[in-house]
Structure formats: C-alpha cells, structure tokens
Design a binder for these strands. Structure first.
Lengths: 419, 419
DNA sequence: AAATTAATTTTAGTCTCTGAACTAAATTAC
DNA sequence: GTAATTTAGTTCAGAGACTAAAATTAATTT
C-alpha cells in the first residue's frame, strides 16, 4: 500500500537534472531567462525547440536568451546528439555548465555536522561529516567547528571558497528564514542569534538559513519524489514531528514564516505531556522521546539510557513478540494516522511523503496506519491522498540545504546576466 | 480581550471602497491597468499621483491607463476636491463608476435563499430573501426557486439582467470552484451536479460557485476586517465548523481545492460521533447539532425539536445558572480553543476572525476561550495571533458571493479594455 | 538531386511601462 | 500683484521583453 522509495532503488532510474520538473503555475515573477535556465537544469538536457514548446514561448526568445546564458558561461551545447530518430534538422541539447558555480549545504546536529558540496547543475560533488562533542554551544564555537568541515569538503573537490556562491544551513529550532536569525535553537546557547550574518562574515559568502523540516522538504522538491509534484506535504518523525509543504513548486513557510508545527497540534485535551511543556501535542505520542518514555514505564527499562537506545530495544522487544512493546508502537501508529489525516483534511495534498532518516520502524509505518489514516479522512473519490515512504541517507538535510542555497543563488546569478 | 466587530459599529467608520486595501505581494500576473483599477476601488477615491506613489509606478503610466479606463466608462473624475490643504496644483480624485457593471450574489440555504445586488464599486444596491420549504431539492427545482429571488432583486433596483455581468453562488457541501460543479451538497438531491452551468444557462451570465466558508472569508476580505490584512484565517461555527484562509490577499482553497476542512480534523481518537460518520471530529464537539445532542441528554429535552431551538433553550438555561448547561458550553469552548490553537500552529496567521451570523453565545466566545487558546499554542513573543469576533447580518454569505463574482468580473472587464 | 521536415536564427514589430521634459493650477513670499 | 515654489498631471521618445513570420540550416525521404 505504501509507495516505498529508497535512494538506491534499482528499478527507478533517477530523473536527470535537479529541481522541480513541473513549471510554476504562477511563474510571472521570474523573467523568462531564469525560467529557461531552471527548465534546462530540471530536465538535465533539452533542445531549444523543446524548451519553447514546454514553456509556451517563442523559439526566437529561447535562442536569444540561451545565447546570453551560453555567453555568460552558465549553459553549454551538448556534443553528442541524444535523439537520432527525427526527420528534420536534429535538435541540439543544452545543459547547465556544472562548474559555473558551486554551493555548500550544512546541517547542524547535536552529535555531528554534515556538509555537501553541489555544483550548479545540482550534482553532489563532495560531502563531509564532523562529529561534535557538546550538543549545545555558542555561535562562535559553532563557527570554529564548521571551518574544518568545510575545509575537508573543499579539499575533497580540490576547490577553494572563491568558487562557492552561497551556503545553505539547516538547524533545528525556531528559525527566521527571512532575516537569517535564530530566535531559539536547542543547539545554541544564545537566543536571537544572528547566525546567518555570523556565517556570512566568516566565509565571505551569502548564507541562507532554514529549519530541518523545510530542508527535508526542499530535498524532496529538488532531488526526490517531489520533483514531479508541484504540491505535496512532507511529514517526518524523528526527535520531533515536523512537516513541510510545497504549494505550486514553492516551499510554503506559513503566513508569517513560523507555521506548520505539526508536532504541536493538539490531538487530545489534557493529553500526554510534551517536551514543549504543553499537553496533548501530537509529538507527545509519536516522537522518539515519547516512545522511550513509554518503554521505560512498560518494560521497566532504566530511564538513564538515550532515547535512541531505548527505542532500539523497544523495537527489538516488539519484534520478539512482546505485547506491551507492540501496543506502544500501535498506539503511536494510530496517532500518526490521526496526524496525517488532519494534514489531509486541512491542506488536501495529492501526496504526503513520509521522509527522513529513520523511516524503518515497521510498526509505525505499517499498512494499517495508512488504512486507518484513510478511514479517519473525509475524502471524495477523486481526491484520495497518496502516501509515500522515503528513506534517505543521513546527508538528506545537507542536500536540502544545498537546494536552499542553489535556488537563491540561481535567481541572483541568472538575474544578473545582462542582455 | 476579543476585538469585537459589528456591522454598524459607530466608532469605526467604514473604510471607503471595497476589496483588499493592501497590494498583492506577488502582483506580477495582473497588468497594471487592473492593479490601478483595483487600487482605486479599494481606496474609494484616489488621485492619480497617489496611485503612482502607492503602486510604485510612473505617473505617466497612471495617466495613460486611467485615461483608457475613463474612456471605457469604468472610472470617473470626482468633482468636489476632497483635499484643500496642499500647496501645489490640487489633485483630482478618481473613483469607480458604480453603474458601469453589476453582479449578483446568491446564498442557497436549507430554509431560505438570499441574494444581493452589488454595483461595480462594491456598493450593495438591493437585497432579497426567499423562504424555501424542502431543504433538499433537485437542481431544476432550485433554479425555479431562484428566478423570483432574482426578479425581486432586479425590480428593487429597477434593472434587468442585461446589466448584470456575473452571478456568484454559495452553497454548503463539497464544491468544485474550478469547474462550478457540486460533487455533493446536503441541499441537493443530485450528486456531481453541474450547478454552475445550469445557472449560467438559465440566466445567460457567467456563474461562479464556492462553499459557505470561502464566501464568508471573501466577505471579510472585501468588506470586513480582512481588507487591511493580506493574510488571515476565518473560522466559523454554525451548522458545522468551517474555515477559510487568505494568503497574500488571495483566497487559499487548499492544494486541490478541497482542503481546510477544520470541522473534520480529529481532536480525539475514538471521540464523539460526528454527522460525517466518523469519530472525534472537532465539529462533533462544537457544531449546533453537537450541542443540541448534549442538551437533549443532559437536560432531558425532547430530541424532536430543531437544533436551533434546542440550542436556544440550552443557552437560556446556562444564562439562568443551570450548571449542566454551562458545562456543555464550557466543554465546547475548550474544544474551540483547541481548534483555534491548531489553526495557529499550522498556519501561523496574524489574525483569526471568528465570523458568521451566530457569534453570540457568550460562553463559546468568552475571554477564557481565548486565553486557553493562547495557552495551548507555542508562540514566540513576536507572533501572538490576534483574534477578532465579527458578527454579520444574515446577508454576509450573499455579499461574499458578490465578492466572488466581482473579482472574477473585474479581471475580465478591465482586461478587455484595449489601449 | 529535389522535396520534405524540423530546429534555429534573424528581423521587424508590438506591448507595457519608465523617465525626463513640459504644462497646469494652486500657495507663499515679497 | 507678480514671481517663485510646489504639487499634479500630460506628453513623448525609448528601453526591455517578447512574439510572429520569414529566412537559414541540416538532416531524412523520395
């Protein structure tokens, strides 16, 4: 019933290119030059005539604008002609010049930081991971920790910072994407930290910030299943319960940029205690610490072990047939159904992607969770919501951060190409 | 604590004009001609120079485009100059020619239909109400019932259909705004009724359809508090619990046009039975039939009376000090808090308007509902959500329907003005 | 080799909107 | 009362972004 996606799925050859494949419904804002560039990157390679047809613009415009982009070094003609079948003059495919620009994506975590270097065509060129000791630190300490991370990355690709156009950074907490500030994060000792500016200063490079859930959503939009969907939701269950939403190929960040806190919608009056201090939050029934708490009670496990370890042993117990352990997962599964059903009821997406690194607790992602979700949802026949499970490697977040940097960098660089 | 708005509030003189006052953030799509027209209508009357400043366009463009619109009969210069204070040449205000076009808004209900005639400047010119006997009928019967409704309306304004440019219709149920079809409605015997086409045929006029909650939201956006807010949510508690959302001055209808079913989000696993057949829906704790059901149980009232009557006597009992009646309202109030808190958590609006005709059960709209809502919400200091209570007359829905027709008609008529 | 087909390129506009110069109508300074 | 000052509105050449249609190029058929 679930549509399970894995990174190295052999039977689904990855689409060429990166970024959303479908055109924006509302693509008035961006000039045609940028639309053409983004279409070429999304398709991997396309001929001018196909671009004209796909975007519904005249061939003359495509010739003129691609000529500018070729002259500026962002596009190139592909030598070997891919299509030999046609009758008339063979099309000449265009593609993005990969090393016309690079971006770095960084994910800050409590136990390790990861980084990815991506070229302008969206190819992952290098990656590095750096363990960290203290989960919570000052901005200055964080900056110092990031230097070797980026050094390793650049050394791997035999590059230096001068060719990097932007850095995207993901960190959990309350993030103000607009200003690049962090009102609060569990990983920082400061509040209202001007993290974006601090990084921009240190690395002399534009910096873009966002939270985990949005990064994951961008990763789906740029590199995953979401590329062929212009509207979808992403739900992730990890330390907390997060959600992201894409509307018309664009990340929706909530009216004032702080919405989509799926983990803290209330699913029970006076319900279970959440780490946010309130009661009845969805997260309090579903996140790792919630299950670990129940494991400690039901199985008499010591409360001293980490949430991850408690969860592992709870999972093993359930697998071994322990009924109490199973009940814990089952209840969590029912609450997941309820949460997903509420997402469908409010946003009516055509697709929900359950994404993240730990999508592997069968009990949580069993078929009956899905059927319970549909049972809890008022759906007209035409609008059954599809649900896909996408287990990524641990570099997803950093890749999502490169998508963030890439999309911002693209409009700047391509917008600056003069006629 | 609540910001209570009433239609005839003496201390808040109504803003002139109609429609959103704030410009669209993303107003690339509409040509400048339409932007100028809509700005003039929103302001009631403005001088050309003010338009240029407000929209950030050159004065030359404003002169040229307004000249076209004046020639086409949509705009006029206002004779008496309103501002006498300035130094230089006095500005000449422009305003919409009210009778350049008219639209009709119709609300279909179970017990009565109402209609409003609005001129192109947004003024309500006439209204009529027609009782109906059977709550559920065929499209053909509905059409027949609508004829006298519209006849009365036109007679009142001494007009005929030839001057009406569009009809907006609101009906409860599952409405497909795009196609004008009604997959299901409690007021129709047919399913998948092509209601829009049927009306368009009968009245020889473009017809636009939408559901109650969206109409109410449009009424707020065009004529109410929402005019000065480009992003807000509307929540209404009537027969059911409805919700509407405005993002960037535009009505957000959910990804596929069927979302925002706030009444059917689940707030309790295996909770109270909802009329949709499922359990634990917010509506099952909050809508009139839910309260009436509890009233029947707690007060031993006969189940035979209407929900409205049961609710009235329950309210009277509560007012008189009946503890059981009070408890019913109190619990409903807590669930309202919970529902509002979930709206804030997911959408993060700056304002929620509690709107509708029956905003008068103090117990439901008491200050402690509001404080409970804030208590249930994770809010950073900068983003406290404001809540306003807006009690409209029973023509709100029909007025909202005129807004629907007006916005569609405007782009057609103004777009057709040739240079 | 000529006809046909399809992909680009060129060229001559069209549309929309801006910017700067110019006119119009009032107030204020002397 | 007249000139300087201010603000509103008008005119018009032209930039920028595209389009439409003719011209060119390069292959496939016949």
């Amino acid at each position: 019933m679930y549509d399970v996606l894995r990174d190295a799925d052999p039977d689904t050859p990855p689409l060429p290119g990166c970024g959303p494949v479908l055109p924006l419904q509302d693509h008035d804002g961006s000039p045609l030059r940028q639309q053409i560039f983004e279409h070429i990157r999304a398709m991997g390679q396309v001929a001018r005539s196909d671009i004209a047809r796909a975007l519904g613009v005249s061939a003359g415009s495509v010739t003129a604008l691609t000529a500018e982009l070729i002259a500026a070094g962002f596009l190139q003609e592909v030598e070997d002609s891919p299509r030999e079948t046609g009758r008339g003059r063979p099309p000449v495919a265009l593609s993005v010049v990969p090393d016309s620009s690079y971006v770095i994506g960084i994910k800050i975590s409590d136990d390790q930081h990861s980084a990815v270097l991506t070229d302008f065509a969206g190819n992952m060129v290098a990656d590095s991971v750096q363990p960290t000791t203290s989960p919570r630190k000052s901005v200055a300490e964080l900056l110092d920790e990031t230097v070797p991370l980026i050094d390793t990355l650049l050394a791997q690709a035999k590059m230096d910072m001068t060719r990097v156009s932007a850095i995207g950074i993901g960190i959990s907490g309350i993030i103000d994407h607009q200003t690049g500030t962090v009102p609060w994060s569990p990983l920082l000792t400061e509040t209202d930290a001007d993290l974006g500016a601090a990084f921009a200063d240190r690395f002399a490079c534009p910096v873009y910030l966002d939270n985990d859930a949005n990064l994951l959503t961008l990763a789906e939009l740029w590199f995953g299943r979401g590329r062929t969907m212009s509207d979808f939701a992403v739900v992730t269950v990890e330390h907390g319960v997060g959600m992201g939403l894409v509307l018309g190929n664009r990340l929706f960040r909530g009216v004032r940029g702080m919405g989509l806190e799926l983990g803290h919608i209330k699913v029970q009056l006076d319900g279970a205690l959440c780490r946010c201090g309130q009661r009845g939050c969805l997260e309090a029934y579903l996140a790792d610490y919630a299950l670990a708490r129940e494991a400690a009670t039901a199985l008499g496990q010591p409360g001293s072990q980490t949430a991850a370890a408690a969860l592992e042993s709870l999972f093993a117990e359930a697998k071994a047939g322990n009924q109490a352990a199973r009940t814990i997962f089952e209840r969590a599964g029912r609450y997941l159904s309820l949460g997903l059903s509420n997402v469908i009821q409010l946003f009516d997406p055509a697709l929900i992607i359950l994404s993240g690194e730990r999508m592997r607790y069968d009990y949580l992602y069993a078929d009956n969770v899905l059927s319970e979700m549909h049972r809890l949802t008022l759906e007209t026949s035409r609008s059954q919501c599809e649900v896909a499970l996408h287990a990524w490697g641990d570099l997803v977040w950093a890749r999502g951060a490169t998508a963030l940097a890439l999309s911002a960098t693209t409009s700047i660089l391509i917008g600056a190409v003069a006629p």
